[in-house]
Design a protein around this nucleic acid. Structure first.
Lengths: 219, 219
DNA sequence: TCTCTTTTGAGAGCAGTGCTCTCGCTCTGG
DNA sequence: CCAGAGCGAGAGCACTGCTCTCAAAAGAGA
């Protein structure tokens, strides 16, 4: 039942726009609006559930894409696969992407349960980075060292994501990560309208350039 | 009068959250909701006006920040100033930033009038790039050439923004641009909660790294 | 099989929303 | 001085999230 409501909500989200209505969901299910409240205490709670699902779906997409590359030593290939997987999921479910990477909903405060699913994609990236580092193929030449102020927290992130890499490399990884999500947001939110038409090729270029920026190579 | 309504809307946006209510604006102005419709045909039209203002405010912030650097040959300094200026505006008016760089509102279709103000910041960046290129201080060594498919459109953007630079450099500029806005979005939308606390320092690091990535130097 | 309890949906209703319409008041130009 | 334009008030429509009560349905224990 809960799943049915969420499905209806997703459907409505997909074809209606961002603001979904409990009453419309109920209408679609031939129910009365108050019945929904048996399963979700409020609209926010439904939204939270959808957000959590979206995080997990994106995380799973990233994980599967990363795992699909046979040659585990092909770090560039793995990186590109994850990057493509993330974009594929985002373009396939743009509204769910907007739910988690768009402007936050007004009163909504992210519960603690969302932080673990939300970092699944960056964990995948971290594993690639770690493997590349272990294989001694992560060049750190000419890399810019962050100011001391940032080092402890970068080290903490690295310890969780890719224990072997330095703070400077971790910083670059976060930057590359930020760039990719910025690119997806720009694309989905229509920032490139009438500017770049082949958005897939443009994203591919960005992913490759960011991989080079990180020093990831094919072998 | 129109300005008064927009001011009230902005105020309400700032302290209320994303969804502003015409009736609440009217209430604040001791008016009745229907009176607002004398000045704005719909809520969307008000929103559009606010979006346009936000674009122009951000553009002006970027332009002023860029112009504030005396030494026009200090390309790194100019880049950093613009980057800081953009972030300063965004953190000062997060809701207006969300209006233009967050998830798009459902039925809203950006009118043609918004595209010119919306690219003002990237025009500022283009000028820096162009100056650096003219001064012969823009290294293109080891730069990744985009696939042929992308070249025409990149050339077109370059022709408008920074006529002298190559497609490959233009691509990097767009990537750096994307990264910076991704960073601001991540910060404002709370993606770094409990991860990085000194967000100003982190942004500064990113801006510097992106400048290096572009090859911008101080002299 | 017959109770008793829990679960579930329906319906009415409240306060709020965007928006439309009509009706008067006020202010201004000729 | 007075017609016409501009403006705000008020009522009203269809919609929203949400709360409440009440009656069926389902399940469990004897």
């Amino acid at each position: 039942m809960i799943d049915e409501i969420k499905d209806a909500a997703r459907r409505q989200l997909a074809e209606g726009g961002a603001n979904l209505s409990l009453r419309a969901i109920a209408r679609e299910m031939n129910m009365v609006s108050s019945a929904i409240y048996r399963y979700f205490a409020s609209r926010d709670e439904l939204l939270t559930a959808l957000i959590l699902d979206a995080y997990n779906a994106l995380g799973e997409a990233a994980e599967q894409a990363g795992a699909s590359v046979r040659d585990r030593d092909d770090h560039l290939g793995r990186w590109l696969a994850v990057a493509r997987g993330v974009r594929a999921w985002a373009t396939a479910s743009p509204h769910e992407y907007a739910l988690i990477y768009g402007s936050p909903v007004p009163g909504y405060e992210a519960p603690q349960d969302t932080v673990e699913p939300s970092i699944r994609p960056v964990v995948v990236l971290g594993a690639i980075l770690e493997d590349a580092h272990d294989a001694g193929r992560l060049t750190t030449k000419g890399i810019q060292r962050p100011v001391p102020d940032l080092l402890p927290e970068l080290a903490q992130i690295a310890a969780y994501i890719a224990p072997g890499v330095s703070e400077a490399v971790m910083a670059r990884a976060l930057i590359a990560w930020t760039e990719l999500f910025g690119a997806i947001s720009f694309e989905l939110f229509g920032r490139f309208k009438n500017t770049i038409t082949d958005l897939a090729a443009w994203y591919e270029h960005q992913a490759r350039d960011m991989a080079a920026y990180l020093g990831l190579t094919a072998r």
